[in-house]
């Protein structure tokens, strides 16, 4: 088991390294060099270059290696992240990316976890019912709603739900917290405030992944229900409900865990879009404006961080899977 964890962690680390290259490619992708643009912006705004600014620029040139070859730039960026947690300079906000990225990431992860909880809490019972009573009314309804969730673009669903909330309550709730709770310390009141605000984004983000999870679970369960060992358990005289819980549901946990890996990128994607529409303080709107302003260290860092979160999530799900299924451990 330990060997498995080490092996999987190493391969995850390798993937992470490759992703960092892709993220760096995003940083250098736009034509022109960010620092030059920055200097010309300052010149245009203030008309002169103070010695202090000159020093700052030289320091940046040295720190991020703007005059070095690309691979040196890349290694300087990665070294900054690994050694000092320095993700680079955000030229649009005039701050260090690491100064504000973590708060945004935390909000993003809260939204992702809430959506995942929502998906699994709903998908497991629906899929289970659909598999035990295939071609029943509820089965068809679940399938149709799943298709609908796939077909409605996230931004439209977000708008419709906001509209519905407005029609019902007379106010549009945006953001993840009320104004007075925005910066408060964590407390029960703050969590409740959060729940009041995030049900719309959670519903939207959840609808994006729900269909595929239900589908995978249902077909896996249907498959398991026809396996000889279920027939064998019936022949043993195991009561039906106990049989369903002991055998197929137990095995359905495996595909459930393995959905985490491919669900995470989808959820991050949905979170970005939904946050932009609903104005949530996650990485989404910041990412969009960073791309539009060519604030590339910020954009590249966001890509790197959400990819890293996906890789870690997949790694954790793989390890859980190995714990749940002795066959994988054995291999």
């Amino acid at each position: 088991m330990l060997g498995f964890i080490v092996r999987r962690s190493l391969s995850g680390l390798l993937t992470l390294a490759a992703v960092s290259v892709v993220s760096f490619a995003i940083i250098i992708l736009p034509p022109g060099d960010a620092l030059t643009t920055y200097i010309s912006q300052i010149m245009a705004a203030t008309g002169e270059m103070t010695p202090e600014m000159q020093r700052q620029i030289e320091h940046m040139q040295d720190q991020y290696g703007f005059n070095d070859p690309l691979y040196v730039q890349y290694f300087k960026w990665v070294r900054g992240i690994v050694v000092a947690g320095d993700f680079g300079w955000s030229f649009a906000t005039l701050r260090n990316v690491s100064d504000f990225i973590w708060g945004l990431m935390a909000n993003t992860l809260i939204l992702i976890f809430a959506s995942m909880a929502f998906i699994y809490l709903l998908a497991v019972p629906i899929a289970f019912y659909s598999a035990v009573r295939p071609y029943s009314l509820i089965d068809y309804m679940a399938t149709f709603l799943g298709f609908l969730g796939l077909a409605i673009p996230n931004f439209m669903l977000a708008l419709f739900l906001m509209f519905a909330a407005y029609s019902l309550t007379g106010q549009v709730s945006v953001g993840m917290f009320s104004a007075q709770m925005e910066t408060a310390a964590w407390s029960v009141a703050r969590v409740l405030d959060l729940l009041r605000h995030i049900w719309i984004p959670v519903l939207v983000i959840g609808s994006a992944g729900m269909a595929s999870v239900i589908r995978i679970l249902r077909s896996n369960l249907l498959d398991e229900l026809n396996k000889p060992y279920v027939q064998m358990a019936r022949a043993k005289g195991v009561p039906e409900w106990r049989l369903l819980i002991k055998y197929p549901l137990r095995i359905a946990i495996n595909p459930l865990l393995s959905t985490i890996g491919f669900l995470l990128p989808d959820l991050f994607g949905a979170t970005i879009i939904v946050s932009i529409v609903l104005g949530l303080p996650t990485v989404g709107p910041v990412f969009l404006s960073a791309l539009l302003n060519q604030d590339m260290y910020l954009a590249g860092s966001i890509v790197l961080l959400i990819a890293a979160a996906t890789i870690i999530g997949t790694l954790v799900s793989d390890i859980l899977l190995a714990l749940a299924d002795p066959r994988i451990r054995y291999e």
């Binding site: 892709v22 990128p265 991050f268 994607g269 954009a299 966001i302 959400i306």
Partner: peptide, 24 residues
């Protein structure tokens, strides 16, 4: 398989956004 794994661990929409924002 490694290449696919790398590409899939980055949310598609983020890559799409980055690439189309980089178009001249």
């Amino acid at each position: 398989q490694r290449l696919i794994e790398v590409l899939r661990s980055i949310p598609g929409i983020a890559l799409w956004m980055s690439l189309s924002a980089a178009l001249p």
